[in-house]
Simulated assay, not measured.
Amino acid sequence: MAGQDIVIQPVTTKGQTKQFIDIAYELNASDPKWVPPLKSEVAKLITPGKNPFFEHAKVQFFLALCNGRVVGRISAHIDELALLQPPEQGMGPGTGNWGMMEAKDEAAMDALIRAAEDWLNDQGMTRVLAPISMSVWEEPGLLTKGHDHSPMIMMGHHNPAYQGWIEKLGYTVAKRLVTYDLPVKDGFPELINRIVASGERKQQLQIRKVDKKHFDRDAAIIMGLLNDAWSGNWGFVPMTDHEIDHAGKSLKPIVQEALIRIAEFDGEPVAFMMTLPNMNEVIRDLNGSLWPFGWAKLLWWLKFPKAQSMRVPLMGVKKELHNTRLASQLAFMMIEYIRRDAVADFGTRYAEIGWILEDNQGMVAIADAIGAKINREYLIYEKAIPATN
Rank of each mutant, 00 (worst) to 15 (best):
D241M: 04
P36N: 06
D359W: 06
A344R: 00
I74Q: 06
P313V: 01
E167H: 00
E336G: 09
R376S: 01
K14R: 13
I46P: 02
T179P: 14
P238K: 07
R201K: 13
Q203P: 14
M363A: 08
L63W: 02
A116K: 04
I244S: 15
Y337S: 11
G294Y: 06
C66R: 05
K306E: 13
D345S: 06
P52E: 00
A327P: 14
G99M: 08
F62V: 10
H77W: 12
L286N: 09
G232N: 05
M334L: 14
G92N: 08
S150N: 10
A57I: 11
G316L: 08
I78K: 00
E320K: 05
A108F: 11
N278E: 08
R261D: 04
V173P: 12
T144K: 00
L290A: 12
I6A: 09
V178C: 04
D345P: 02
L112I: 02
N28Y: 13
A161V: 14
T324W: 12
R73E: 03
V136E: 06
V173Q: 14
R208S: 08
T179A: 15
D341F: 00
M239V: 06
G232W: 04
M363Q: 02
D216T: 11
L129F: 06
M155P: 01
A331H: 05
A2K: 14
M152T: 07
Y171Q: 01
R73W: 07
R339L: 01
P183H: 10
M273E: 09
E26V: 14
A296I: 11
T144Q: 03
G362Y: 12
I244V: 14
I260S: 11
A24E: 11
A220C: 07
A344N: 00
E320I: 15
F53W: 07
I366M: 04
G68V: 14
V312R: 06
S289E: 08
G146R: 03
Q16W: 02
L63E: 05
S40C: 07
I370G: 10
G294S: 03
V317A: 08
Y171M: 10
Y381R: 04
I78D: 01
T172E: 12
S309Q: 07
A43W: 05
A327S: 12
V178P: 06
